[in-house]
Design a protein around this nucleic acid. Structure first.
Lengths: 246, 246
DNA sequence: CGGTGTGAATTCATTCACAGCG
DNA sequence: CGCTGTGAATGAATTCACACCG
């Protein structure tokens, strides 16, 4: 029951940095973007303190994060910007470019297809698909040469272009079907904008972006805040008698 | 140095459920959506197992999450769908509606303004702002009566409409300025789509949605996957000599 | 019996604080 | 001396496992 746990996941032999924590992976893109910016500005080195401030994290967290990639800093000095930006890019796989398809070319899908930050960081749109016949054949500004094809051709597009990532921007009702087909066609990475929980096998990685969810989280905090404030205004000593109205 | 920590944040007196963990708050919108769907289907009760499956979490996690709201289930039976959907809605503040402004009416801003899921869950767009004179006065399908106004009018719009949440969908370079003005105007909740880290005082809540970041996280896992597979194909005993090419 | 609610155990993430190196 | 890199300490989230109740 015990005896099978590895106890500590980072820190094997010499040059090893296996098993970067998920929380760290999620921050690497931020560091990368900030560093790329500094690099463009001609900044040569940066301290953990500075980089952390620009990235909105604490310097301790930043150093721990970077320590999972290796010892890329210089004590007493900081990090070499150009070197570090490259190391992070390599870790994230940004040194190659990634073919992407977008399924669902409504308002959101079109906005995504035209989004500059996409192409600028090594993501190349190789397919646009939609079920609506009215959209077939239309083209989209920032995806030159890529015309919208019918959803029926999904499997063909996957085979031809071998996309690594599928972006699902369909209505909620269509999303699971599209997902199933994308997975059946052999794809393993999905970015889902549809407001549904996708069911996939566990070798498929799904990330979701849900606008309504984000707003609801903000609303929760906003509500808590104003509830608390009301109490302070009404009375100034009572510690916690709030909210139990119902 | 010690002696000032509260030790445990949930679990005060009788009907209290203060301090719902952030991770739980982030999942409540999912449960709410799933439950609303079940309710529309006329389902009367649901077990933690079922609800968990539909929500993509484990049943233990779901039960612990719900336990932070109160004891709303019936042992041996499950949860009353209609009752629970209401309790979660109340907790999230979805029983009132929240006025929202969108700053930046480019591709993405327009897509957001037209996004149905927005309005459908109590978020009402009360302002659309942009710096581009060409867009001023145009209107947007799902925000009836709301015309795009010039960014100069931001402060006026905030004062008139008292929005609770600002959505920033401007280009990266404009985002911090807009953010500063939004905060100066007294707003405290921001949903940021611009690929920058916003600097705000700590009484302001910012959530961000970053497309490039999401793709990069997927790319990381995709890379790891294919690297691992390659190794297995090339050789079958070597434990870890990969990736150090440079 | 079946399924909730929850302490206890475990795993994961963050923060602290400082040794050690350039 | 200044700043990185990291063990150790703390804290948060998840999972386990079962008492308890309808």
């Amino acid at each position: 029951m015990a005896a099978l746990t590895h106890k500590y996941s980072g820190g094997f032999a010499v040059g090893t940095r296996r098993g970067i924590p998920e929380a760290t992976v999620a921050r690497l893109p931020i560091y990368h973007r900030v560093l790329a910016g500094l690099n463009d500005l001609g900044v040569a080195t940066v301290s953990s303190e500075e980089l952390a401030n620009s990235s909105g994290v604490s310097s301790a967290k930043l150093r721990k994060d970077l320590s999972h990639l290796g010892s890329y800093g210089t004590r007493g000095v900081g990090y070499d910007v150009e070197f570090l930006v490259y190391q992070i890019a390599r870790e994230l796989g940004l040194t190659q470019d990634w073919p992407v398809i977008i399924v669902g070319v409504g308002n959101l899908g079109r906005a995504l297809a035209n989004y500059g930050g996409f192409a600028s960081r090594g993501f190349r749109i190789v397919g646009l698909l939609d079920a609506d016949p009215a959209l077939i054949g239309s083209d989209v500004a920032l995806a030159p040469g890529i015309r919208v094809r019918h959803l029926d051709e999904l499997e063909r597009v996957v085979e031809e272009a071998e996309p690594a990532i599928a972006v699902i921007a369909t209505p909620a009702l269509a999303a699971q079907d599209v997902c199933d087909r994308v997975v059946a066609a052999g794809m393993t990475s999905i970015l889902n904008f549809a407001p549904v929980v996708l069911n996939v096998g566990d070798r498929v990685e799904v990330r979701k972006v849900d606008l309504a969810t984000e707003l609801q989280i903000l609303a929760f905090h906003e509500q808590r805040r104003s509830r608390d404030t009301e109490v302070v205004v009404t009375d100034s000593k009572v510690s916690l008698t709030v909210g139990g109205a119902l």
